[in-house]
């Protein structure tokens, strides 16, 4: 499962980097979203991947999952959600004001 998760994070990051380097605002916004998804998964994986274990230590327990990364991810998700909403509105605003959706505001047919 570790290999799968790291592959997913890697692919998401690569897509995110590629898209955020594009010239039009919509791919850039998508790229930022992918990057933040990758970051969220990465944070979750940093608590080690444990399945079926309780988040609290108790007597006689052998393994446990670390609950902190989940709290961190929750915060990160909320923040990246708000930021995505903001950047979408901003991208629409630039499109309306500059007349095209190029990040530099220069129209290239």
């Amino acid at each position: 499962m570790e290999a799968l998760i790291s592959l997913i994070i890697g692919v998401l990051t690569a897509c995110g980097v590629y898209l955020s380097l594009r010239g039009r605002t919509f791919p850039v916004v998508l790229g930022l979203t992918f990057l933040s998804y990758a970051a969220n998964l990465f944070l979750l994986a940093m608590g080690r991947l444990v399945i079926g274990a309780p988040p609290i230590m108790a007597d006689g327990m052998t393994g446990y999952t670390d609950p902190l990364p989940q709290a961190l991810v929750l915060t990160a998700i909320v923040i990246s959600f708000a930021m995505t909403a903001f950047v979408v509105v901003l991208a629409l605003k630039t499109y309306k004001e500059l007349g095209n959706d190029h990040v530099d505001g220069i129209h290239k047919p």
């Binding site: 930022l32 990057l35 990758a38 970051a39 990465f42 902190l68 961190l72 990246s80 930021m83 950047v87």
Partner: peptide, 18 residues
Amino acid sequence: VINLVGSTLFLFAVGVLY
């Protein structure tokens, strides 16, 4: 946009440290 990319990198760095 550049600050959002920066924030993502911040999260990666924090993740590795944790």
